[in-house]
Design a protein around this nucleic acid. Sequence first.
DNA 1: ACCTATTTGTCCGTATGTATG
DNA 2: CCATACATACGGACAAATAGG
Lengths: 122, 122
Amino acid sequence: MVSLLHIDPASPGPLHERIAGSVRRAVLEGEFAPGDTLPAARDLAQTVGVNINTVLRAYRDLRDQGLIDLRRGRGATVRDGAVSRARLDGLADQLLAEAAHLGLTPADITHLLNERKSHESR
Amino acid sequence: MVSLLHIDPASPGPLHERIAGSVRRAVLEGEFAPGDTLPAARDLAQTVGVNINTVLRAYRDLRDQGLIDLRRGRGATVRDGAVSRARLDGLADQLLAEAAHLGLTPADITHLLNERKSHESR
DNA sequence: ACCTATTTGTCCGTATGTATG
DNA sequence: CCATACATACGGACAAATAGG
């Protein structure tokens, strides 16, 4: 049994998103290394106190983001490169949050990124 | 009322995948242009004879693939560039299917793609 | 090599919530 | 305030992979 993942019950946002966030953070902090197997969805669901499908939804999202592999009978395993992916996701979230806080539209953000890119290529 | 999307009941694969495939094909064939609104999930679910969540699952996947926008209260609308995305997805599926038919592993496919890339850059 | 019980994710459905117009 | 339409969470049946004998 491994807890390692404690989900704050009084934080904002959907459950599956908080769970995915916790896993992402755990990977980022090295609690799970590439190749490691995450807790089985059923187990994590029980320890956290949510339905298995909610955890599975989080796992599936993480898989779509390229962070983990998900195979029935085996479980969820951390993919190579997951750490850098997680770091990128974290930075992206940060950027988006700051931008939203400043009232920037998606178009503004796109424009800003293109600006930075053209700088970088000099 | 708009049918336009007929899902073959006797084809292989999960329902949500077949539905997503139908929508993708419809967009590809120009039955829905960028900006158009897709049938409401409930309606499509009823005409097809499945649960609304199965359709919503398909819609969400298509959104994650960048094909449509999904906003609650409004509906699902085809995004700009959806046609080319759909075409790419179609080609990718074709390539993967052929490769699988030849018994190629994912690693083989990656290798093959890298080969082609190096050719192209000459 | 075989079988079968367990583990573990996949899929579809039901009910309720919540933003939009 | 009401109707619309997607979003979220949960429940149960199922199938693939695996482990033991």
